[in-house]
């Protein structure tokens, strides 16, 4: 549309999608939030439990910490990848994109079991390390936080690489050369000019990965250990095992609230809406 005005014709075209979203997304979410406040013992009992019982606070804290670690790992791995992606010719670009996206397109279960094959104590990596005489026994790489970090970093990488590459592609490639000609060492040219200009991409990637990691279930369930479960697993446990749906709803509402708050921060203060295409 060239004019940004609402017309009934366009509105009519939107209607099926809106109805679909309202019936299958907005309404269930509203019910979910309502359920979390619906305990006869008082509207906030479940929230009191989450925020006052150290067991649950620890799960929330662990989820946040792990998500942050995944985001930082993705940044460390993704920044050079995005940089190279932006500098490469068409073939190099295709190779890097395929390496980043093929795992992303691969079925979550297939990939997670793939990691188990690689990482388990009798797995390929430990086997190679033993053969090389570097270790005896096995390095615990899976069924613990390490395994979750590895699996989640891999799946989240595109969410870091793509916004970063988008920002980098808009940077004038002569800027680092200009900085060098003006007396900046390669390191100074990077820290004073290139890095600040990629900051919007860094923030977008970090926030995106962090938000998506908060609610991640499959990878922690398969690659994680039984003792350090995350928020999504706790929700699953309350739905399927203890059948405490109102408490599960309260946990979900906390997760939803945290995600929305982060989204708002990114949109409001870091102008990330532009990168995500909402503006």
């Amino acid at each position: 549309m060239t004019e940004k005005s609402f017309t009934w014709r366009a509105g009519g075209l939107l209607l099926p999608g809106l109805l679909f979203l309202a019936a299958l997304f907005a309404w269930p979410v509203a019910r979910l939030v309502a359920t979390s406040f619906s305990d006869p013992a008082g509207a906030f009992v479940h929230y009191e439990r989450i925020f006052l019982d150290p067991v649950y606070i620890r799960v929330v804290g662990r989820t946040m910490a792990l998500s942050a670690e995944v985001a930082v790992l993705c940044l460390l791995l993704g920044y050079p990848l995005a940089y190279q992606l932006n500098r490469s010719g068409p073939l190099g670009k295709a190779i890097i994109l395929l390496c980043v996206l093929i795992p992303f397109w691969t079925n979550l279960l297939v990939r997670s079991y793939g990691w188990i094959v690689l990482l388990n104590p009798q797995g390929i990596i430990n086997g190679l390390l033993r053969e090389a005489g570097l270790i005896e026994g096995a390095v615990p790489l899976v069924y613990n936080t390490t395994g979750v970090l590895i699996g989640m970093t891999q799946i989240m990488l595109p969410y870091m690489v793509l916004p970063l590459a988008a920002v980098m592609s808009r940077i004038d490639p002569t800027l680092p050369s200009a900085a060098r000609s003006l007396g900046a060492s390669p390191l100074a040219a990077f820290t004073r000019v290139y890095l600040p200009l990629t900051m919007p991409g860094i923030l977008a990637g970090l926030l995106l990965v962090f938000m998506l990691s908060l609610g991640f279930f499959v990878v922690p369930a398969l690659l994680g250990g039984p003792r350090d479960i995350l928020l999504a697993q706790l929700i699953d446990f309350n739905i399927n095992s203890t059948l405490n749906w109102p408490f599960a709803a309260a946990l979900s509402t906390v997760l939803l609230g945290a995600t929305l708050a982060l989204y708002w921060i990114g949109d409001r203060f870091f102008d990330l809406g532009r990168l995500w295409g909402t503006r």
């Binding site: 050369s177 200009a178 060098r180 000609s181 003006l182 060492s185 000019v193 200009l197």
Partner: peptide
């Protein structure tokens, strides 16, 4: 010598000003 050690002024075609 590396460019930063040459001490020459360079004006680029597209100016290459630092937008940050």
């Amino acid at each position: 010598l590396a460019p930063e050690r040459r001490g020459l002024g360079v004006v680029f075609q597209n100016y290459a000003l630092f937008p940050n």
